[in-house]
Design a protein around this nucleic acid. Structure first.
Lengths: 238, 238
DNA sequence: CGCAAACTTGACGGGGCGTCAGCTATTTCG
DNA sequence: CGAAATAGCTGACGCCCCGTCAAGTTTGCG
């Protein structure tokens, strides 16, 4: 977002500078698809992009910064997904729609897995720019997801509803990580279609708040501490 | 595991060498708690551990290798968790037990988040040693999780059961990522206790295979492709 | 055309990387 | 015990990447 109008020297960027910057971003994107971030050198980007390292430093401070610019271009909320999330989800289509959502979500991760992985990793390290990039990228999805939670749980008695913000946060966490894990070789017999199926099942369960064991369900928004008094060692450490 | 008996020079390690190696691992662990992996220099580890950089290279090839050694020491399957997973889970305690499990799991991530994050990131990049480290670390949990799926779904008609391997893979993915995300500042009102609650709810749902919308549930192990025919762009790319 | 702003680069000092020869400490064993 | 063998440690060095700067080239505009 907020495409910069100046380079790092404070100069107004004209068409030539803009193109050079674009080429650097494109090259960085390309390299990140083939090699871990930490192995990508400024000299390598320069060589592939056909500019000197000095030129690189006119537009970016570090390789991570160039990667961030590439990451900002990834649209996690494709028109298809938005469209799906904004259409009504009748009860008898809940699982089908969840499945479609999961597949759409995974296909975006398939396409951009290197960039999205780096984004999340650096964000997890606490880098505010990457945290913001992630937040901005998932926000359109997140808000519509929350609406779906409210929509699908409006029939439930209040005390059995799940908190929309927390529910969506956990669901997106599941989707993010499953999209990654699904790419790793699995020693156990977890196949992609079956993991899609499980993910869809969980999305549907959480969205609808449906539970088959209501008899023992306490206030759904309760404090978890009430039910687990074991020795949580340093649960708030670091 | 498989503590090396030799250093990288092919020498048998005596007690002195062993202690030096331990000190390097401990220092690496400590530094990783304060600073991202990529910023940690060999010289810094050496200085903190009271050895020269040359000594470092006798025991490890790179900083990542030292980090891997530190990671191998983390036991994700604490006795408490194993104990919980091996005890019976009566239906009317399903959610409580799930909640306890989630809290135990999160507390381990709280304690070792830096190491576990690095482990998963490097594994996701395709590094076999880190992939193996992750697999070995979660296996005790994973197997017992699978047993619970079978145990809790044995009453269900076969066509409604979830595939244990895929179910557990997705659940662990959810727990791993949620344990991370829970640490990030949340712009929306997702609080830790509520995210624990949602995670526990999803664990309980998946373990029991319970669904409130059985009427439209197809063969639970089906191919996801049957239900989503939209334009999945490059779902198997890269 | 001519000037100012935009753009690019080669060259360079600084610093982390990884190796090696040579020294010290410990162990082995006659 | 003493000496040879083995384990352990390090300073110094060459290499490569980093990030900057002064000095050049190109572009746009009056």
């Amino acid at each position: 977002m907020a495409r910069p109008k100046q380079n790092l020297y404070g100069q107004e960027m004209g068409s030539k500078g803009f193109l050079t910057r674009e080429k650097i971003i494109a090259t960085t994107t390309e390299l990140l698809g083939r090699r871990p971030l930490r192995e990508i050198k400024v000299a390598e980007i320069g060589q592939s992009a056909g500019v000197s390292t000095s030129t690189f430093y006119i537009y970016f401070e570090t390789v991570s910064d160039a990667a961030l610019a590439a990451i900002e271009r990834v649209n996690q909320a494709s028109p298809e997904i938005i469209n799906l999330m904004e259409s009504p989800w009748p009860r008898n289509k809940l699982l089908q729609n969840s499945r479609a959502l999961v597949n759409m979500y995974f296909s975006i991760w398939d396409k951009h897995h290197a960039l999205l992985r780096v984004r999340n990793f650096v964000a997890d390290e606490g880098d505010k720019r990457f945290i913001d990039a992630r937040r901005r990228s998932i926000e359109p999805l997140l808000l519509r997801f929350q609406d779906k939670v409210r929509e699908l749980q409006e029939d439930l008695p209040e005390e059995r509803r799940l908190d929309p913000a927390s529910t969506v946060s956990v669901l997106l966490a599941m989707l993010e990580r499953t999209a990654q894990v699904i790419r790793l070789p699995s020693a156990h017999r977890a196949t992609r279609p079956r993991q899609v199926e499980t993910a869809a099942f969980l999305v549907a369960s959480a969205l609808s708040g449906g539970v088959p064991f209501l008899d023992e369900m306490p206030a759904a928004k309760g404090q978890s501490g009430d039910y687990f008094k074991g020795d949580i060692e340093g649960a708030a450490s670091n």
